[in-house]
Amino acid sequence: MARRKKKGRRGKEKIRAKKVIQAPKEELKRELKISAIDEGTVIDHIPTDATFKVVDILDLENHSGIVSIATNLQSKTIGRKAIIKVGGKSLTQSEVNKIAIVAPDATVNIIKNYDVREKIKVKTPDIIDNVVKCSNPVCITNNEQVPTKFYVLKKDPLKIKCHYCERSMGKEDIEII
């Protein structure tokens, strides 16, 4: 009984190419499978243009466990989305905070024994401490060893203002430290 239940959950992890907009007819019949992970983290609802920023934030290039990335998937809430599955990794609060900046609608699912143990909706903070680099080359934070600090002016689309040089930055200027 328990075994059947587990299988069902694994089934939920499948991402169906059927739902991808404008896919060729033959491809509609195919199914894109991303293997379920027994332990780790699934980050869902990532805007497609932020996919590789999340990869960078989590330093997944150097991760030794399984990493599955699916992008350009249809999402009811954000249009197109990406999902990243990382086997054998739990996120730190600092990593979750960083993801919130590039993917404000993301959900972080903590997987244990193929089961979603916890679902965390990331939240863009009002103040961003030492996560983002100031885009102003003559800002004191780019010339001295000073932790950066930004105030969030607008959450969607993200607009932040440097505590030191007072320059405001849009989503496109954001570079994670």
Binding site: V138, C139, I140, E144, C162, H163, Y164, C165, R167
Partner: peptide, 9 residues
Amino acid sequence: HPLEGSARL
């Protein structure tokens, strides 16, 4: 100071 934000720091 020539750097922006220097006075705040």
